[in-house]
Design a protein around this nucleic acid. Structure first.
Length: 573
RNA sequence: GCGCCUGUAGCUCAGAGGAUAGAGCAACGGACUUCUAAUCCGUAGGUCGCAGGUUCGAAUCCUGCCAGGCGUACCA
């Protein structure tokens, strides 16, 4: 099923090409859009003015001709030219009703699979091992997962890859520190807490003590050369870290297809660098091996440090080549914060020089910081992700308990879990990803207004309506219901239901889940207005079922849309 | 210095070159004998950072400036 905006725009495109003899360069300008104001109808077409300019004709005349040619289309009830050349369209109620009937039958709610036959690698979350995840990791994790879900739903084959930082220079200090003053019991209790303590203390001591720093360097080199003792300890750290991360991922309902950390690419780096040097892409500079990117206006990309070690630039090239070789993806998405923009521009520039055709996208997001400044382990103002999730559930539980004290406690907890974690995810994803987030508890865990609970509550009420419908009327599955859309609230709701694919496509194409949250909020408010003002269980038979079809569709779209964002819905709240 | 980003209501933020710039929160006033009031309705609140330019039309595109954030060769 085509999206409603495509469907309405298509005849305009045809008229312009066939009757006005104008080759359309950018069909984007010839699309209808939802009317800004109900008095302008349902949709409006604004392209006549610029088109008139290109064709050298008076805009109102051109708009009039367009309108005349559109007359008679099955979906059109009324068309008028307004102002300098706006074309306002009012949809036929019968046609809207038919469309709603069709979408009702469609499990996918009108969404097609534009990604079918293509695969996409999504690199997200990617925490560093040996320290607990903190709220700075939440955006990549949540945003990346939403992109994963959306792409899967649109038919892409998605490979979710957690590119964990398991091979950094921090291991020198960790190895030495753990042997000297590590506490195995504490490690068993809470490995990441203990490793972080060891790292922080080790780092501080090494600052004071050059000999210790030197030892850390030596141990790092020994690790990298494959020393079995160091290797064993390293593995212990990494395994424990991944286990801890998995607890969080499980709690968030997140799963990866692969977790290929930096260490995975380690034994490819030497050959890769030699290859780049042989091809003449890399050259020596100040003892390091770099790819100069002057043509692109970028600083050099260092692929081997002057001490002979490799860095994340090298690893990222290797990872990119590996992914292409293994999955032959149409796209690779890297979900990281804005601080890495330069790195990825350099990486992509190198990719182009190697001749890589794959579409590479850096999906960056604004950093998260506290009102008083950045998070920093040394200042001790980091908030552990676990704490954040706990607090989200705790606050939601308080509200559930206050509003619904009679519920079974296990059910309250279940609702609180969905609501709390949903609120946290929604707060993040409803914001344009590129703006920085200033972290505040109240904002990050808002449970009212434009928030996940608003949508979840709308969903829960719809489920309640259907429970009542079954009880009171023995209502069935609504199959064969003749839908009849009438009245402004119903019309607006029906139209919004049909727009789901448009907003989903837009959110996915721009990698901006906030387009989807905006849409879902609009859908839910349209529904809540409808709910408040239009009876359905109390409406006469026929009208009742017709309106319940709308309710059902709203519920399914909310559930599906939230699911694409990783947010669960409760059946009651 | 250079690069990227941000600047929109008291606060937090949406905003696909189009008509009178939107939402949530906060404030004020209303609606539960009726499908769950975590809801709904209403009021108030704005020289879209500043100045030019392009355009029939600019929060949106271009240039300059101001303020803030991030980055800027061997951390990731």
């Amino acid at each position: 099923m085509a999206s409603i905006i495509d469907l309405l725009s298509r005849p305009i495109l045809e008229i312009v090409e066939d009757h006005l003899g104008h080759a359309v360069a950018d069909p984007k300008n010839l699309r209808v859009s939802p009317a800004r104001n109900p008095k302008f109808g349902d949709y409006q077409f604004n392209g006549a003015m610029s088109l008139a300019k290109q064709l050298g004709r008076p805009p109102r005349e051109l708009a009039g001709e367009l309108a005349a040619r559109l007359e008679g289309l099955p979906w059109l009830e009324e068309i008028e030219v307004a102002g300098p050349g706006f074309v306002n369209l009012r949809l036929s109620g019968a046609w809207l009703s038919d469309r709603i009937g069709e979408v009702f039958q469609d499990e996918r709610l009108g969404v097609e699979r534009p990604g079918a036959g293509r695969s996409v690698v999504v690199d997200f979350s990617s925490p560093n091992v040996a320290k607990p995840m903190h709220i700075g990791h939440i955006r990549s994790t949540i945003l990346g997962f939403a992109l994963d879900r959306m792409h899967r739903f649109l038919g892409f084959e998605v490979i979710a890859d957690n590119h964990v930082g398991d091979w950094g220079t921090q291991f020198g200090i960790l190895l030495v520190g753990y042997r000297r003053f590590g506490n195995p019991d504490a490690f068993d209790e809470d490995p990441l807490e203990e490793l972080e303590r060891v790292y922080v203390e080790g780092y501080q001591r090494a600052q004071q003590d050059p000999a210790l720093m030197e030892e850390a360097r030596r141990e790092l080199v020994r690790l990298q050369q494959g020393d079995p003792e160091n290797r064993r300890l390293w593995e212990k750290f990494v395994k424990a870290s991944l286990r801890e991360f998995d607890k969080i991922y499980k709690r968030l309902g997140i799963a990866f297809d692969v977790t290929l950390g930096e260490s995975f690419y380690n034994d490819r780096l030497q050959a890769l660098v030699e290859e780049l040097e042989k091809k003449g892409l890399a050259s020596r500079s100040d003892g390091a091996l770099v790819v100069f990117l002057e043509e692109e206006g970028l600083p050099p990309f260092i692929i081997r440090k002057s001490d002979g070690g490799f860095n994340y630039a090298t690893t990222d090239i290797a990872a990119m080549l590996y992914r292409i070789e293994r999955w032959d993806p149409a796209k690779i998405l890297y979900v990281t914060d804005e601080g890495q923009q330069l790195h990825f521009r350099q990486l992509f520039a190198v990719a182009r020089r190697i001749g890589i055709q794959v579409e590479l996208e850096h999906i960056w997001f604004g950093i998260m910081r506290l009102p008083e400044g950045k998070f920093s382990t040394r200042d001790g103002n980091v908030i552990r992700l676990e704490t954040f999730l706990d607090e989200a559930e705790r606050r939601a539980y308080e509200v559930v308990h206050r509003l619904n004290p009679g519920l079974d406690d296990a059910l309250k907890r279940e609702i609180a879990r969905k609501v709390g974690l949903g609120a946290l995810r929604y707060a993040d994803m409803s914001q344009n990803r590129q703006s920085a987030i200033e972290f505040r508890w109240e904002k990050a865990l808002s449970l009212e207004g434009n928030s996940a609970p608003y949508l979840q509550y709308t969903y829960a009420r719809i489920q309640s309506v259907f429970r009542k419908y079954r009880e009171e009327f023995g209502g069935g599955d609504l199959q064969g219901t003749r839908v009849c859309v009438e009245g402004d609230l119903e019309r607006k709701l029906a139209r919004t239901i049909l727009e789901f694919p448009d907003y989903l496509y837009r959110a996915a194409a721009a990698y901006r889940p906030n387009h989807l949250t905006d849409y879902l909020f609009d859908l839910a408010s349209s529904y809540n207005r409808f709910y408040q003002n239009v009876p359905f269980l109390k409406a006469p038979e026929g009208t009742r079922e017709s309106r319940l079809v709308l309710c059902d569709l709203v519920g399914r779209i909310i559930r599906t849309g939230l699911d694409l964002l990783g947010i669960e819905v409760p059946e009651q709240m």
